[in-house]
């Protein structure tokens, strides 16, 4: 994802702003890191460049 996307992304639960943490870049692309809600503290992982903003109750890992 592009870092500029942070301007319109928000926490799916309480709609507060997200902060990018532990980012790793490939050029302009953020390929990994976490998006942390500035209010509730829930974190959402960026997985191979795609932010996983599923609420926690839908997020458990996919079975093989």
């Amino acid at each position: 994802m592009k870092e500029s996307l942070l301007e319109i992304l928000c926490c799916p639960l309480d709609k507060h702003e997200l902060e990018l943490e532990d980012a790793e870049y490939d050029g302009d692309e953020v390929v990994s890191g976490d998006l942390a809600c500035s209010d509730c503290g829930e974190t959402y992982p960026i997985e191979d460049g795609i932010p996983n903003l599923l609420p926690p109750d839908m997020r458990e890992e996919t079975p093989a």
Partner: peptide, 17 residues
């Protein structure tokens, strides 16, 4: 296209965007 994994009933986007 910027891809996002998310729930259509809990959209992770700011109001009016």
């Amino acid at each position: 296209v910027d891809l996002l994994q998310g729930d259509a009933a809990r959209i992770p986007l700011e109001d009016g965007t």
